[in-house]
Design a protein around this nucleic acid. Structure first.
Length: 838
DNA sequence: AGCACGCCGACT
DNA sequence: GTCGGCGTGCTC
C-alpha cells in the first residue's frame, strides 16, 4: 500500500479499524463501519458518530465496539464524523443497554433511543435547493405544474425540506415529484445536520486589560471622560459590581451585560465605550440551572428513624437491596437525605428515582435546599437542552447526585454508590410504549449490580414483588411504623352509598357522612381532598330510550364527556367529537351522562358547598409545564378549600391543613379485571389517605362504597399491610400469578380482526413447543379490543420465575418471531413483547 | 422504522 | 399509456 506520494505505508499501522455502531433503528444488531485514519487515535466505545445508513439517511450512533475484523459479506462504509472528544456513554452503560435489550426482548437501538436525550441525537432532514448550474432557459424537459410550484417556492425560499414540499402541494409525500426534479437536474438534494443542543449564552463585558494592569491609565481615562458623564457612570457602575482595584483577576470574568443595560444606563454610551476599546464584549456559556448553595441538613432524626437508619446500614452488610416499608408520614425523606449525604461524602454518586408526578412537588424543593446545585434534576417536563446539561453535568462531575424520573437510570454515572427508589410500588416506573418496556426499579437494581452499589426501595405500600423478595430474604427489610412528630394516623370511615340511597340521604352522589365531614372541615378553615380516578365529566353518554352508547370510531371504548369545551373525547387515541343532541340510533333526545369524572364531581361539590373555593387537578388542568405547580401553590397558600383530583393528588403532597380525604367511588378501584386490582386499591387508598392529618390534627378519610363489607376495606382500615399481603398471596399462589411466576405478555396488532387473532393463535402453537415449563393463556381479545383502528389480541405466558426458564424461553421466542415474520400471512402483524407487564 | 424497488389497477 | 397504490426486502 502506498500513500499519496507513493511511499510505502507501514503494514502494522495500515490494518484498518472497524467500529460496531449502535443505531436508533429497530434491528437487533450493531452495524460495522470503517474508522477513518484520523479518528483512530481518539475514537473509543461510547463516542457519538455520524454515519450514513441506507442510501439517504444520516444518523447519530454510539460506538459499541472497536475491532479489526473486516466484515465478510459487505463493504463497510466509513464513519462520517466523530462528534465528541470524550465518550458520552461509558462501557458500563453499554453493558447495561445490552442487558435491557436482552431482558426486555427489544433491540439495542431502541434502548439507545430511550437512553439518550434527543438533543444529543443529530437529525438529518432532507432538503432541496435549486441546482445553481441549471439554466432555466428553453429546457429540454417539460416542467409539470406541480414541479413549477416547487421551483417557484425554491426561488423565493432558497431551500425546502421534503416535508415542506408535501405541504405546499397538499400531498402526503412529494417524493416522486422531487425525484423527477432531481432526474432533470433542476434541484439538488442534500442532508443537513442539526446539532440540537444549544448551550445558553450570556453576553458579558469587561474592562480592557490595559486599564486593569495600569492604574494610571484608568485615572487618565476618568479625566478624559469628565465631559461625558454617561460613560463615566457606566464605568463607575461596573467598578461597583466588579471591584478590580481590589483584585485584578476578577475583571476577566467581567459582568453580565444585561445587569448594566437593565439598570437604566445608556445603551449607546456603552456601545461607544466598547467601540473605543475601553470595554470589551465577550460571550460565556452558562448553565441553565441556577447557582444554589448547599445547606447540610440539620434536621435530626427521631429515635425511631435513627434506629431504621442503623438497620438499613446493618442490612447492607449482607444484602445489596433493602426495602424500607415506612407508613405515610413516617419521614422516609429524612432518611434518604442522611444516606445521600453519607454516600456523597464517601465520593460516590447517588441516584434518587421518583415517580413523575411526585417530582415537581415539595420533595425536590426540600432536596434543593440541602444539596443546592450539586444535585441535578432530571424531569420529563424539562426541555431537552436542560436534560443534555444534566447528562453533561454527570460526566463532568458537577452533579454527584441526581433526582429524576424513570429515564434517569440512563444517565452516565460511573461510580454509583446508592440508588434510592421512592414509592417503589408506583406503576409509572414501568414504560409501556414504545420499547424498551423497562421497569426503572428492576433495571436500577441491575444497574446497581453493575456498579456494585446499594439500592434502597421505599414505600408505604410495597409492591408484592418487592415484599416477596424481602420475605424470601433476597432483600433486607426495614419497617418504620410510626408517623414522624405528633402526627396521628387518620381515622377511616366507610360510607355506604346504597344505604344512603335507600334512606334518601344521597345528594349528588355524595353520602351524608362525606358531606358532614367536608362541612366540618370548611367550618374549621381546614382543607379537603377528593379523590376520583377518572378525569372528564362523565365516562359515557347513554340514550335513556334505547340504551345506545357513543363509542370511539377508532377504539373499542366509549367516549368520555368533557364539559370543558363541550366535547366527547377518547382517552385512548385522543379522538374528539361534538356532543350529539339526539340519539343516532332511535332519534330520542333523552341523552344522559352516566358515571362521574373529576369535572362532574367538581360541579356537584360546587352545588353542595356554594361558599367553598374548589379546584380540580387532573391531566386536563396540569398539561402545561407549570400547571401542576401553580395549582399546588394555590392550594398550599390556602386559596383553595376543596381540591378534586385523580391519582395526581395521591403522591407526595404534604399539606398540614388537609384534614379530610374523600374517596368518591372506591369500588371502581377494586373491581378492575386484573389480578393486581386488590393490591392497587390498597395502595391507592392508603396513599391518598396518607395526605390527611399530617400535622397535629387527626385526619378523617371517608371511603364511599356500595360494598363496605368487602374484606379489602377491613385490611385498609386496620392498616395491616402484612396481613393483606398474606391473604392476597394465597390467591396468587392458587392461580399462578406474579410474584410467584414470571409473566410475559405478547400482543398482536392488526387492522383485520381475524388476522390479529389467527396470528396470535399461530404464535401460541409455536411457543407451546418451547422446552420449558410454562402456562400460556389466550389468545384473548384485549381489554380494549381495538385501539387506533388496530385489533388487539393478547397471549399471557407464565414461567417458572427461578432457574433457566425465562432466558431459554426468550431465546426461543426471538427465533419464533423471526419465523413468523417470514410467514406471508402475518407479515403485517405487529407483535409487542412486554416482559413483567404491570 | 423508513425507504427503494417492483407489480398491478384506475384514470387520461 | 402513466400515475400512484401498496407489498417486500434491506439497511453496515
Amino acid at each position: 500500500m502506498e500513500d499519496l506520494f507513493g511511499n510505502p505505508i507501514d503494514d502494522k499501522t495500515s490494518i484498518p479499524i472497524f467500529a460496531d455502531v449502535i443505531l436508533p433503528v429497530p434491528i437487533p444488531w450493531m452495524f460495522t463501519y470503517m474508522v477513518p485514519r484520523e479518528m483512530e487515535p481518539i475514537i473509543g466505545i461510547g463516542f457519538r458518530v455520524i454515519v450514513q445508513f441506507g442510501t439517504r439517511k444520516i444518523l447519530t450512533g454510539i460506538v459499541g465496539k472497536i475491532h479489526q475484523k473486516p466484515p465478510k459479506e459487505y463493504d463497510a462504509k466509513p464513519l462520517l464524523e466523530l462528534l465528541d472528544n470524550q465518550p458520552m456513554v461509558n462501557p458500563l452503560q453499554i453493558k447495561f443497554w445490552h442487558w435491557i435489550a436482552d431482558y426486555y426482548c427489544c433491540h439495542i437501538g431502541e434502548v439507545m433511543n430511550a437512553a439518550l436525550p434527543s438533543g444529543m441525537k443529530l437529525n438529518s432532514e432532507s432538503r432541496l435547493q435549486l441546482n445553481p448550474t441549471f439554466q432555466d432557459s428553453g429546457s429540454d424537459y417539460p416542467i409539470d405544474e406541480r414541479e413549477k410550484i416547487i421551483l417557484d417556492h425554491l426561488e423565493t425560499e432558497g431551500e425546502l425540506t421534503f416535508e415542506a414540499c408535501g405541504k405546499i402541494l397538499e400531498l402526503k409525500s412529494a417524493h416522486h415529484i422531487i425525484k423527477s426534479l432531481v432526474a432533470k437536474e433542476m434541484v439538488l438534494v442534500y442532508e443537513q445536520l442539526k446539532e440540537k443542543f444549544t448551550p445558553k449564552i450570556e453576553n458579558r463585558i469587561r474592562l480592557s486589560a490595559l486599564f486593569v494592569s495600569d492604574k494610571s491609565a484608568l485615572e487618565a481615562l476618568f479625566a478624559k471622560l469628565e465631559s461625558k458623564p454617561k460613560q463615566e457612570e457606566i464605568i463607575l457602575k461596573y467598578l461597583q459590581q466588579v471591584p478590580v482595584y481590589k483584585d485584578e483577576k476578577i475583571n476577566h470574568e467581567g459582568l453580565d451585560k444585561k445587569l448594566l443595560t437593565e439598570s437604566g444606563i445608556s445603551v449607546n454610551s456603552l456601545r461607544t465605550l466598547i467601540k473605543n476599546g475601553i470595554f470589551e464584549e465577550f460571550t460565556k456559556i452558562i448553565s441553565r440551572f441556577e447557582n444554589l448553595p448547599t445547606n447540610p441538613d440539620t434536621l435530626s432524626l427521631s429515635p425511631v428513624q435513627e434506629e431504621a437508619l442503623n438497620q438499613i446500614k446493618e442490612a447492607y452488610k449482607e444484602k445489596q437491596t433493602v426495602l424500607l416499608h415506612g407508613i405515610t408520614g413516617s419521614g422516609k425523606t429524612s432518611l434518604y437525605i442522611k444516606l445521600v449525604q453519607e454516600v456523597m461524602d464517601s465520593g460516590s454518586q447517588v441516584l434518587l428515582l421518583l415517580p413523575e408526578i411526585a417530582l415537581t412537588t415539595q420533595m425536590v424543593n426540600r432536596l434543593t435546599k440541602v444539596f443546592g446545585n450539586k444535585m441535578g434534576v432530571f424531569h420529563s417536563k424539562y426541555s431537552d437542552n436542560e436534560r443534555v446539561e444534566v447528562w453533561q453535568g454527570v460526566i463532568q462531575g458537577r452533579f454527584q447526585f441526581v433526582v429524576g424520573v424513570r429515564s434517569a437510570v440512563f444517565l452516565p454515572f460511573d461510580s454509583l454508590g446508592l440508588i434510592i427508589i421512592d414509592e417503589e410500588h408506583e406503576t409509572s416506573y414501568k414504560q409501556h410504549d414504545p420499547a424498551p418496556r423497562y421497569h426503572a426499579r428492576d433495571t436500577a437494581i441491575m444497574l446497581a449490580y453493575l456498579h456494585q452499589s446499594k439500592v434502597l426501595l421505599g414505600s408505604a405500600t410495597p409492591s408484592f414483588e418487592s415484599y416477596y423478595n424481602a420475605r424470601q430474604k433476597k432483600y433486607g427489610l426495614v419497617e418504620l411504623n410510626l408517623r414522624y412528630g405528633e402526627a396521628q394516623l387518620p381515622h377511616f370511615h366507610m360510607a355506604d352509598i346504597l344505604a344512603d340511597k335507600k334512606k334518601n340521604l344521597l345528594k349528588l352522589d355524595t353520602t351524608r357522612l362525606l358531606r358532614e365531614k367536608i362541612q366540618e372541615a370548611l367550618n374549621n378553615q381546614e382543607q379537603v381532598l377528593i379523590f376520583q380516578n377518572r378525569r372528564g365529566y362523565a365516562p359515557y353518554i347513554n340514550c335513556e330510550d334505547c340504551s345506545w352508547v357513543l363509542e370511539c370510531d377508532h377504539c373499542d371504548v366509549s367516549l368520555t364527556y368533557h364539559q370543558f369545551g363541550e366535547e366527547m373525547r377518547c382517552h385512548y387515541c385522543g379522538f374528539k367529537q361534538k356532543v350529539p343532541t339526539s340519539c343516532p340510533a332511535c332519534g330520542s333526545n333523552n341523552l344522559v351522562t352516566v358515571g362521574q369524572g373529576t369535572e362532574k364531581i367538581e360541579e356537584n361539590l360546587a352545588m353542595l358547598f356554594p361558599e367553598a373555593r374548589i379546584a380540580r387537578m387532573d391531566l386536563d388542568t396540569t398539561r402545561s409545564k407549570y400547571g401542576y405547580q401553580n395549582l399546588l401553590e394555590n392550594f398550599s397558600a390556602g386559596n383553595v378549600d376543596i381540591l378534586v383530583g385523580t391519582q395526581m393528588i395521591t403522591k407526595g403532597l404534604d399539606f398540614g391543613n388537609v384534614t379530610v380525604v374523600g374517596i368518591v367511588d372506591a369500588d371502581r378501584l377494586l373491581y378492575f379485571p386484573d389480578f393486581r386490582s386488590g393490591e392497587r386499591a390498597f395502595q391507592q387508598i392508603t396513599q391518598v389517605a396518607g395526605r390527611a392529618g399530617r400535622r397535629q390534627k387527626t385526619g378523617n378519610v371517608i371511603i364511599q362504597s356500595r360494598k363496605p363489607d368487602h374484606p379489602i376495606y377491613q385490611s385498609i382500615l386496620s392498616g395491616d399491610y402484612r396481613n393483606f399481603y398474606l391473604q392476597e398471596m394465597g390467591e396468587r399462589q392458587q392461580f399462578f400469578y406474579p410474584p410467584l411466576v414470571k409473566n410475559i405478555k405478547i400482543t398482536s396488532k392488526h387492522k383485520e380482526f381475524k388476522t390479529a387473532e389467527t396470528a396470535a393463535l399461530h404464535l401460541k402453537n409455536l411457543l407451546q413447543a418451547i422446552p420449558v415449563k410454562k402456562i400460556i393463556l389466550g389468545p384473548e381479545k384485549g381489554l380494549i379490543g381495538k385501539i387506533k383502528n388496530q385489533y388487539i389480541f393478547e397471549l399471557l405466558i407464565k414461567l417458572d420465575k427461578n432457574g433457566q426458564a425465562p432466558p431459554i424461553f426468550k431465546e426461543h421466542l426471538k427465533l419464533v418471531l423471526e419465523e413468523l415474520a417470514a410467514a406471508k400471512a402475518f407479515k403485517s402483524v405487529r407483535f409487542i413483547i412486554d416482559v413483567d407487564p404491570v
